[in-house]
Simulated assay, not measured.
Amino acid sequence: MKFLKEQCSLAVAALACAALWTGWPSAALAHSEKGPCQDCMSAEEFRLADVRHFFPAALGQSWNYIGYGQEFAGFTRTVTQVKDGRVQVADNNGGAQVARVFSVTEEAVVQQVVLSESEPAGDLLAAKPNQELLLLKGPLQQGATWEDGAWSYRLLSVTKTVWVPAGLFSGVVEVQARSLTRPNEVLVACYAPEVGLVRRDYYSGDGTQISAQLQSMSVVGQNALPQEKISLPDFFSGVVKQQASEEVAAEVRFARIRTLKDKGHEHYAAIVDIYRAPAGFNGDPLAMPESWKAAGWQVTIEAAYQAQFQRKIEGGQANYLLAEWLPAKENYPK
């Protein structure tokens, strides 16, 4: 869920970073005898036939995630080693650094090694696996299920649209993982084509939700997500204070997207919640409601609206034009 900002960046995953994959997967894969045949599939079928499209791994590539719900939920991931289908990354959340090694093939993404910063790191590509977490398993088909001994997985969608601080991503693969030993513990991960992990939400089962959402991605220090301007009413630009006389402190209102659907042909539909907060509110509008409550802020949903908007390109600049703004149905699930 994400409220729209006047100058927020927007990335459509179907186009993002396609030029950056200079060999992962290689051009030869498209026409190999064993791999998918690009000429006999649609673009979507070709992507879904090879899970590597959803787990890019160029040496030096990095992703920055904003965290919500916990102090160290956000982190930066950087690819430090790549060789023969093995990928090593360093995850740094500001409090600790963790090294991970993944086996990344056409058929699966498996997390095989995890070492904390207290353990020796260096080149771990040849290290003996200390776990086998099957994060993605091909072919990617909605409703597919699998297990790895620790988690049971269900592929919830292969066409999801996700809005995170980095922008808008379509054609997203959404995977739910449920702990085999603690069934109430659930992890939902969203992977965008040619971008990778864009959102990860952890649910403890006791009401706790911890989220990490993509803010930016770079390759060798260069921004890898195209910047697009949002042109929408000021109400979407962030926290908007209502006009009031000097004697009366103004309350604060802001909008956040609850659900978002790509309708095709550059049209999108959203359900938007309007939040009301007391005067002086300085909390993070993107944070989980639990964090506002813990900080003592009384933040409530004042109204919900159905929004329709269209993407238009003018002079090489993408703008998003609001076409409809109507009260949402009262029985629409929150």
Rank of each mutant, 00 (worst) to 15 (best):
A58M: 14
G85N: 08
I274G: 06
N64T: 10
S26M: 06
K241G: 06
G94I: 03
L59V: 00
R311K: 15
S204W: 07
A189D: 15
N64L: 13
H53R: 02
R199Y: 05
S157Q: 07
T181L: 14
G60A: 03
N92R: 03
T76G: 04
K329T: 10
V113Y: 06
A14S: 15
T161E: 08
V104P: 00
E185S: 05
R86L: 14
L4V: 07
S218C: 08
Y202V: 01
A250R: 04
E314G: 01
A244K: 13
V195P: 00
N282E: 15
A269T: 06
T181C: 10
D273T: 01
P193L: 07
Q81M: 10
Q176K: 12
G67W: 05
E174I: 01
L168W: 05
R258F: 10
L197C: 09
V104W: 04
L225C: 04
Q310K: 13
Y153I: 01
A14D: 15
A189K: 06
S103T: 10
D262F: 04
E251R: 10
V87I: 12
A30N: 10
V114P: 00
E251N: 15
F54S: 02
S157N: 13
A126L: 12
G171E: 14
S218K: 06
E228M: 11
W151D: 11
A99E: 06
L187E: 14
N319R: 14
V98A: 09
R154C: 09
A304H: 03
A166P: 01
R253S: 14
P56K: 02
E185Y: 08
R100D: 05
Q176F: 05
W146P: 00
A277T: 05
R182E: 15
L124Q: 02
G35T: 07
C190D: 12
N282C: 11
Q209D: 03
Q142M: 08
D123E: 13
S245P: 03
F46S: 04
G23Q: 04
R311C: 14
E330K: 11
K2C: 09
E247P: 00
S62I: 00
A108P: 02
R77M: 12
P193C: 09
S237R: 08
A189G: 08
K160W: 02
E185D: 13
V186E: 13
Q317T: 15
G149T: 03
G85D: 07
V158L: 04
G280V: 04
P285S: 07
F102D: 02
V158A: 11
Y65C: 03
G238M: 09
N92Y: 12
L187Y: 05
A49T: 03
L48I: 07
V172R: 00
V158R: 00
L197D: 09
V12G: 08
Y268C: 02
G280A: 10
S237F: 08
K5D: 13
S216P: 01
V101H: 01
R77D: 11
S216Q: 14
L232M: 15
